[in-house]
Amino acid sequence: MQKAAIFLGFVPWIVFSVIAGPSTWMWAALAAFLCSLVLAVPDWRRSRSISILDAAALLFFAVLVVLALVLDRAALQPIEDRAQLLSSIVIAVVALGSLAVGRPFTEFYAKKQAPREVWNTPTFKKVNRVLTGLWGGVFVLNALCDAAVGYLGASPDVFNWVVPVVAIVVAVKITSWYPEHAARQAREAHGAHEASAA
């Protein structure tokens, strides 16, 4: 599975996180919504399906854009104050929710890279459960960092930038390494099983 394929699914959320601030969150929501459209339309045209991340991004950022258009400034204040925290919670719930219902969100991206005959193998399923759990953990960590800044006055430089960036870099490296590692382990176990049966 190419790490770039999964990373593309995060682009709208990253765009929102980078741009969103007390006075810019509505523009961040619009930019993230447009990014979601750019990512989702080609998949939809090709296969009549989109990833759960793209679907969640389209819905979440469309709702934010509509709220920005219809509500007055006072009503929008809570959203302005916690826009990044809300986005972190939503993406964490989507990732862990997809794992809980047995449809890890990473499978959508993995199926673009892996041949159809491996889609139902135990190794393929295990890899996607592990990677979805890993990314879900990263999103939970990001939400906790946002909460620490918003409610506890923690350093924004450390908790909005350093910790999330380090977590994402580690997750990207694991995402790149783990599928081949798991496949190699499965091949070795299969070879050992055949040798013992001979």
Rank of each mutant, 00 (worst) to 15 (best):
Y109T: 12
F124D: 04
S23R: 03
R187Y: 00
M26C: 00
A100L: 15
E194C: 00
L34T: 04
I6Q: 02
L53V: 10
A40Y: 01
V15W: 02
S155E: 12
A114Q: 15
R116F: 13
T123R: 11
S36W: 02
P164M: 09
A186R: 01
I6W: 02
S51D: 05
N128H: 07
Y151V: 12
K173I: 08
V101I: 15
A74F: 06
P78V: 06
F33W: 03
Q2C: 02
L67C: 11
I174V: 14
V65P: 03
I6A: 07
V169R: 05
P156L: 06
Y178T: 02
A83N: 11
C145T: 11
V172F: 09
V118R: 10
A186C: 00
Q77K: 12
V127I: 14
A5N: 10
Y151H: 12
A147K: 05
A110I: 06
I52R: 11
A183E: 05
G136S: 03
L86H: 08
A57C: 05
S88D: 14
A29Y: 01
T123W: 12
S36Y: 02
L141D: 10
G150P: 01
T106N: 11
I89T: 07
V65G: 05
L58V: 09
D146V: 02
N120S: 10
Y151R: 13
A183F: 04
V15L: 08
T175C: 04
